[in-house]
Design a protein around this nucleic acid. Structure first.
Lengths: 398, 398
DNA sequence: ATACTTAATTCAAGTTACTTGAGTAATTCG
DNA sequence: CGAATTACTCAAGTAACTTGAATTAAGTAT
């Protein structure tokens, strides 16, 4: 269940102001430190308007002054930085077997994290647990609760799909007909944002990772399967029914390995945690943890090497598809896979030459490594809250 | 060169006004007839603001009064309707060999079209020709010029790509370093919108075709190659550099036919005007026109039948990818291919079962046929103008 | 019929937040 | 050192919205 899309509403001076605050915040966050004149030029506002907005944002401790910059001609620029130290947000990842909690300051620094095993992921059990975990986190960080900006919850979601469809398997039992946002908001008494892991990770990357300053990019998320988060003009793409980004089941090998979804040659059969586990098990190796995988990579394990090659071939193809369809600033790889493995994968990619991403004027690599590890999704949950506060609506030109 | 949107800009009274006009128009179009008080409640504006906006919209002949409604208590409601008959827009498609002109009323009815052969597509030659073709069209329809809402121009575009990249080939000579919008706006003295054929066709479908009422869908456009237009939450997706939608070069046959882009098995080698032409030529058949193709289909031509089967296989796979990545309300096939051929193609598709589009609650087919024919792109150009006037930016809630 | 209730609309004033243009300040460049 | 350059501020001006009272035209109850 999702929240049905609402139609756009009209603007007035007040709504305009809050839009402009977001525009300015978003710009400063991506381009800090920056001066008012520069902000004004970039945001299409007068310097006077920006001056007023900045003054207010400083008062609200969302921006801070960062001293004068000299060296260029003209009057020295008073530069502003995003002030991310006082306010904070809480992110939780809900998996069938675990609940992970993370707290992030507005600037994206993790100041708390925790992992709790879960025997039961049903709403009746999880909702009170989330509530108590938030209390535990608040106690642990010892911060004023009034500075909590909101809660972001990451959980496997799929909306209205058939039993045997590609995405349906990971769904949490008991949540099929529950509006998760409303349920959590009622229980927690503060704004809640719900998202899937890949989108949350993508947002996290834009809030405080390698995608800072990007407006359009793709994030390929290694979870149990393989997910895709797409940010376009600063906003997450969810599709008509909320199921966008099902990259694991695009076919990269015509007539390849049989997949549970009914097709052959799905990307997920070649590039995912499941696939590396399956491949290693054929050689009698059981590597369930990221730590174990990183170890195997270090000792140049042959089966892992085979997997890496095949994963790289298939990922290259999928990345080519993403580049051609979305024309992103970059494709980011991250999630539940060790950094070293991701780096090795990226190293082995053979990206198509004939892609719209193969531009002569690139200034970032076509593929970047994002943040990874067990906490990625929970951190993403907290990042979603920040994103929501900072990111303005896309502009429609007259 | 186009204007690629990088980030949202701030609002002011004027920008706010034009947003509100769009919000009101969009609402009335979807809920006509409706009164000002109702509009105000739905759009989150005061009745006074709505009154002023409506007055202006009537003046601009975008709304019309539709008499009073009585029967309920209180003062009778003056109801408004969308006025689709008086205002109009002009669309042009610029190809290397032809310039096509079409005029659409706001309600999407074509009231004029024309095709002129082109020996020279350079700016110096084309810009004055466009200007004069518009004059010819205005004379032909005999309408008040003040009701011309804008001009939409469809032309092959690719931004900042390498020579050998997949999309670069179709580019018009002489336009590489020209800002087409600015050039045309300066010459024509009215707002100009520039877009590629696939996106224009997609927008056209939403304004007055099978995608009316859709917020998110994909349009696969048969042009010389194969293009993709993506509408997401009502807005066209263009990617970070404006090159999104390069669907012709996604690989649907691992190790398949060699493509000019350097890869093997690109979709365009199996499903495009080029590919059907190449395939038929192998059997000594030359079918350059849509009419000829439709004829071959009617007489159950064997080589065409072969092509249809192979095109359907590869398109099915590509559509599966679109569904999984974008989760659209539907995928639409259209463009320079006869309706009968498109219908036959759709008939032969074998869509993946394991796709997020395979929902039990679907109320439209997964694949629809859009408008097709020579005029499709020019009509799309005119539709872009309408779309721009009517569709507001999505609202970001606080 | 008459008075009351309801709801849409308008009028006029008030408010917000932006823009504009003149003026000031601080620095580099020649 | 003066000229040029750039950032910023002040004060006035403006567009477009909101507010609250007044007006209008029904329907409804007496």
């Amino acid at each position: 269940m999702t929240d049905i899309q609402t139609r756009s509403i009209g603007g007035n001076a007040g709504r305009n102001r809050s839009h402009n605050r977001r525009v300015v915040l978003d710009f400063v966050r991506a381009n800090e430190p920056s001066g008012r004149a520069e902000i004004a030029r970039s945001c299409g506002l007068s310097t006077q308007a920006v001056s007023n907005i900045c003054e207010q944002l400083v008062q609200d401790s969302l921006l801070q002054e960062d001293g004068f910059r000299t060296g260029a001609r003209g009057k020295p620029v008073m530069r502003y930085r995003f002030d991310g130290e006082r306010a904070f947000s809480i992110g939780l990842e809900l998996r069938p077997d675990a609940l992970i909690t993370a707290v992030l300051t507005m600037s994206g620094d993790r100041i708390y994290s925790n992992r709790t095993k879960l025997g039961n992921a049903s709403p009746g059990f999880v909702v009170p647990l989330v509530k108590s975990q938030i209390e535990v986190a608040l106690d642990a960080i010892g911060r004023d609760r009034s500075h909590l900006l909101g809660v972001g919850i990451v959980m496997p979601l799929s909306f209205g799909l058939l039993e045997n469809s590609s995405a349906g398997q990971a769904e949490l039992p008991g949540w099929e007909n529950v509006n998760a946002r409303e349920t959590f908001e009622a229980a927690l008494g503060c704004p809640v944002t719900i998202e899937n892991d890949a989108t949350a990770a993508a947002i996290s990357e834009r809030v405080s990772g390698v995608a800072r300053g990007f407006e359009s990019f793709c994030f390929v998320y290694f979870g149990t399967g393989l997910g895709l988060g797409v940010i376009s003009d600063g906003h997450a793409q969810r599709g008509a029914y909320g199921n966008a980004g099902e990259i694991g089941h695009i076919i990269t090998q015509t007539g390849g390995l049989a997949c549970a979804c009914g097709n052959y040659g799905c990307l997920e059969k070649y590039a995912s945690r499941m696939s590396v586990r399956d491949h290693l098990e054929k050689s009698g190796i059981s590597a369930l943890t990221g730590f174990a995988l990183a170890g195997l990579l270090k000792e140049r394990n042959a089966p892992l090497d085979e997997w890496l090659n095949s994963a790289a071939v298939n990922l290259s193809q999928a990345i080519g598809i993403l580049e051609n369809l979305f024309d992103p600033e970059a494709v980011i790889l991250g999630g539940a896979m060790p950094d070293t493995v991701l780096d090795e994968l990226i190293d082995r990619l053979q990206l198509p030459v004939g892609s719209v991403a193969n531009r002569p004027d690139r200034n970032v690599a076509r593929v970047l490594r994002g943040s990874s590890g067990r906490m990625t999704a929970a951190i993403g949950g907290a990042a979603m809250v920040i994103h929501k506060i900072v990111t303005p609506a896309p502009t429609v030109y007259q």
